[in-house]
Design a protein around this nucleic acid. Sequence first.
DNA 1: AAATCAATCTAAGCGATGTTTAGATAACAC
DNA 2: GTGTTATCTAAACATCGCTTAGATTGATTT
Lengths: 201, 201
Amino acid sequence: MAGAKTYHKEDLRRDLLATARDMIAQQGYHTLSLRGLAQKVGVTSGAPYHHFSDRRALLLAIAIEGFEDLIRPTQTPDILKLPPFDRLVALGRAYLDFAQHQPRLMELMYESELTTPALAPELLVYQRQGSQALLDAVTEALPANMLNDRISRVVGYWSTVYGLAVLRNKGLLQPHEPKAVEPQDTDHLVIARSAKAALQP
Amino acid sequence: MAGAKTYHKEDLRRDLLATARDMIAQQGYHTLSLRGLAQKVGVTSGAPYHHFSDRRALLLAIAIEGFEDLIRPTQTPDILKLPPFDRLVALGRAYLDFAQHQPRLMELMYESELTTPALAPELLVYQRQGSQALLDAVTEALPANMLNDRISRVVGYWSTVYGLAVLRNKGLLQPHEPKAVEPQDTDHLVIARSAKAALQP
DNA sequence: AAATCAATCTAAGCGATGTTTAGATAACAC
DNA sequence: GTGTTATCTAAACATCGCTTAGATTGATTT
């Protein structure tokens, strides 16, 4: 009897994740309480502990879902078949799009107590995977005579993309700009320029 | 009788700030509890509320102290008298040095619940002030024929510096680098390159 | 100098939270 | 059907932020 109100919930774990994700998308992970979540799902406060060892584990699961959503588009044939330079620009834009549409999720993925001071080791893997496609594209786009300078160029491009994504969400990109040009309009300029800077001598 | 153990503490507010700053520097702001702090200072749990309206206010005071430490070196004559290009590189390095030496404080200043989702408006002023010297230097260093492209160049340089500072603290700059060149060694390379990229056509 | 007053602290408690435990209920295997 | 296991409820515990009432101190006033 799917959907009927039973004592046993059909799939409480999935309900918890989906509802928590919605709540986080609205008000951030800080204010999410397991008790409030349980109440919203219609279950007592002890029930979630049969599906997650603690609050941290639930947040971790949601963060990992977020990374999968972030990484998936970077592995499509559409992206992979692009020439290296076009690919790294496309990846940068994809990263920025994700950050712009899921700002609260980004906080959970990169700035939450899951990552600092004691990082969940599982999450570090995903954090690195999240930028790997970007880094590979820079390396592949580099002419052979610059490969020895590879690291600083990779670091430079990745830093620019991440900094741009985060600072925009924090509202720190228009400090006292009177004729405020929207950063969205300058994204591709910044990305293209830093991509060029990563490749040119 | 300074230092004598009196009922009235000499300057509890200062003690609380100093001790809290130490605790945050060690384990981050997440795990800081007012009760634990009060106990460490040797006072009951209600005492801090005579000096700070709530936990948030104490964290805010510490964050603001941090911004003052971050901003002060950017306003010295030594820095201000540098030519624009040298100045913006020096400012970038100063920013990175601060982040490297105070990683937990950086989290409080830029990634804590003070800043998201409901930002303390006082803090936004300091956050913007923290990058203002950087932005000014880029603008001043720009030749007249590029001023119309000013915003994207300023945004690009600031994003690179911030991204580099934060990603290094998160350990996200050496993903699977076998012969791991320390990011410290590439800082000036990255900064100099992004500074150049911000200025050149 | 004595009395008054405001500031600061303690002691105790409230409400909310994360988490655990014991026991009831439902789904399922045999 | 019977027994087993997973899942939920109900209740409780510890901790935390924060408030209140009252005690103690230092300063001010007279």
